[in-house]
Structure formats: structure tokens, C-alpha cells
Simulated scan of single mutants.
Amino acid sequence: MINEALAEIKRGTAEIIDEQKITELLKSYFDEGKNYYVKAGFDPTAPDLHLGHTVLLQKLATFQKYGAIVQFIIGDFTAMIGDPTGKSETRKKLDRQTVLKNAQSYKEQVFKVLDPAKTEVVFNSKWLDALGASGLVELTTLFSVARMLERDDFEKRFKAQKPIAISEFIYPLLQGYDSVYLRSDIEIGGTDQKFNLLMGRHLQRSYGIGKEQAVMMMPILEGLDGVQKMSKSLGNYIALAEDPNTMFAKIMSISDELMWRYYELLSSKSLAEIEELKEGVASGKVHPKFAKELLALEIVERYHNSEAAQRAKEEFDRIHKKNDIPSDIKEITLKGPIWIAKALVEAGLEPSTSQARRDIQAGAVRIDKEKVSDKDLQLEAGEYIAQVGKRKFAKLKVQ
């Protein structure tokens, strides 16, 4: 039983530090019914969680199946500093009102994955506010500047003579102190978080709390482009709050190769089931589109319901098999005549006029199902159905 649990827990992981500790915690649970604590922190720097975040949430849910109490930390204190991980410059400071608003949306979304009865949602301002100036000074004595500069992103910025704020040095210490205060047994995070995750072990040892957390690192989920990390700022994300039709269509848009990555990190199917499906596709017995539909149905059902998932599939089929337009698209009224690129931006179909021009040149823009080739086209008064790519539609009412 322990081996079976451990295999499921290890599924998809990139690296584990102190696997023996995890095995011992599982043994205590199966032999004595003793619970243990798994920590994961999320800074509410944006209002919505996306599927990239759920790689960690799914793993937390797996731990809950095997005796874990999840310590879901909303970093309302640390979010106002900003995690410097992977950043080439100091992040802009968020105001508390924005952080708290984002935090509320996190609380509403996490229980689409986690078991509320086995989850403790905590805000790290509770103990970091109480730490005070003297406690913060004591904390900074436990790690040297030289060690901090060994961190890859800090080292690069230091060599490039780019500014590093003192608060950015403090950030990993504060994240590590979360583990001291909560007495966490395990902390999980992305591979880009290794420095911060190990800080928790270091500080637990320094404060002598009698334990050192194991560390589990999960791969970073690629976005829809299959290249860069899923990110709202890059526009390659699938939000948990996405409507069913959009969520289904976005999943169907990923490449056949990326599909298996999503299966491994996001699906609740067993590894054996996924391997069987993969072999079916490789042998030609199963069409890749069918496999992708199963994934899309599973994910939409998880964050909505089975009826919504089925309707989303039917809508997707209707649009793509019949080359039709969605039954429910947004409408926007514009003052004309208006440049096509500007109209697409105002309709929310394009992020910028320059991107609109590029998409027109690439043949990805249609007006009333006809491909647009003139990037300087002016739309006169009338009604138009604008389309960018296969998934973005809007009805334009030009007055």
C-alpha cells in the first residue's frame, strides 16, 4: 500500500529531496493513522488561478488521499514584495487592496481541486506581521549575502549591474520562515522554486524546531504555445474561471505532443490508463483528436460539470466540423469608419494593433468568414462577424 501511494505521489515529479522522510510519513499514516502537513504557497499577484497552478494543486490533492493536511498559504504579505524568482528586474510592488482582492478569488477556486476538510487556508501576514523588526533582523542573520548571490537570477543581475532590492533578498527568508511557523513536514513547488524551498529546510534546522521538511518539485507546465511557462501575462494560459466553451477549445488547440504532458500533470487517469491510450494513438487504433477530447472533457468537467463539458464538446464540433460561428458571441459597438486592427483590439480579439497586423498577414483574421488580406482595411457602418484564429469571435456593430 505504501509503495502504491508513493508511486502515485511521485508521478510527474521533477525532483524530490528527502524521499525517505515522505516514506516514513506515509508509514506512520498507514500504521497509526497519523496525519502530516504538506505546505504550498501561492502569492495572489493576479486574480485568477490557471492550469499551471493546478499542477501543484493536483499533487496536494494526491497527498490528501494519503493522510496529508494541506497548508495552503496565501502569501498576502510576501505578494507585496514579489517573488524575484526568474525575474531580471525588481518587480513592481502591489498594494494591499489588490492583493486581498486576488486572495479572495484564490480561496474561491482552490476547492475545485482540494478537499476542504483536509485543507488549512492560511495567510502569511498572520505571522510575518507579528515577526516585527527584531524578528526580521534575527531572520536575516541566518543566511549570508554571499550565499544569496549564488542564486542564479541574483547572480546574473549582479554581474549585469542590475539593481537588486534588499526586499528581494528577504523574500526567500520569509518563505522559509513560513515553514518554521507552520512546522511543515513537506513543501512542494515548481522547479524554479528550488532555492526558496530549500530555505525552508535551512531555517527549520536553524530555529531548531525538531524537523526538516522534505521538498518536492514539480515541472513547470508549458502554456498553449508548448514553449513558454503558462502565464497570464504571456496570454498562453487556461484560467480555472474560464467558461466551459473557451476552456474546451483551448485544450483542443494544444499540440498532440503537448497533450501527453498535460495528461501526466493534469489528468486524474492512472499512469497505466494514460500509457494504454498513448499506445493506442501510436498504433493508429485511437485518433489523437479523440484522446485530446477525453482530456478536454475531463478538465472541463472538473472545473464546471459533466453537462457543461458535453455542451462544450458539442459547441466545439459545431464550429469546427461545420465551419460555423459560436451560438453565443460578444457584441461590441464601434464608431466608424474604423481601422480593422483597431477594431480587433477594441473587441478584445487582439492584444495590440501590431499583433493584429501580424495575424492579418498570417491569414488568421476573417470578417464574415472571408479571410482579410488588407491590413489597412477600414470598416464602414454595418454589422460584421470578426474572427481571429479558430477560437476568437466577436460581432462588431460599426455606427
Rank of each mutant, 00 (worst) to 15 (best):
I2M: 09
Q20V: 15
I22T: 03
E24A: 05
K34Q: 11
N35D: 10
N35M: 14
A40C: 14
T45G: 09
P47Y: 04
H53I: 11
T54K: 03
L56S: 01
L57N: 02
K65A: 05
Y66D: 02
I69C: 12
I69W: 11
F72N: 04
I74M: 03
G75V: 04
A79P: 13
M80A: 14
M80S: 13
I81K: 14
G86P: 07
K87P: 09
S88F: 08
R91W: 06
K92H: 12
K93E: 11
Q97R: 14
V99S: 01
K101C: 15
N102D: 09
N102K: 08
E108D: 08
Q109P: 07
V110R: 01
F111G: 05
F111V: 02
V121P: 02
N124P: 03
S125G: 09
D129T: 14
L131G: 05
G132Q: 05
E138H: 08
K156E: 05
K159F: 13
A160K: 14
A160I: 13
Q161I: 11
I170W: 08
L174N: 01
Y177G: 02
Y177R: 05
V180K: 02
Y181V: 15
R183Q: 13
I188M: 01
D192N: 06
G200S: 03
Q204F: 11
R205K: 08
S206L: 11
G208C: 00
K211L: 13
L224A: 06
L234T: 05
N236F: 00
L240K: 04
T246M: 07
A249M: 08
A249G: 06
S253Q: 03
S255C: 05
L258T: 12
Y262L: 06
Y263H: 11
S267N: 01
S268C: 15
S270N: 02
I274P: 04
L277N: 10
K278R: 13
G284A: 12
F290L: 15
K292T: 03
E293P: 03
E301Q: 14
R302P: 05
S306C: 12
R311Q: 10
K313V: 10
E314T: 12
K322G: 13
G336Q: 01
W339A: 03
A341I: 02
A341C: 03
V345M: 02
A347G: 05
T353G: 00
Q355C: 06
Q361M: 15
G363K: 07
G363A: 12
A364F: 09
V365G: 00
K371L: 01
K375N: 12
L377G: 07
V388G: 01
V388W: 01
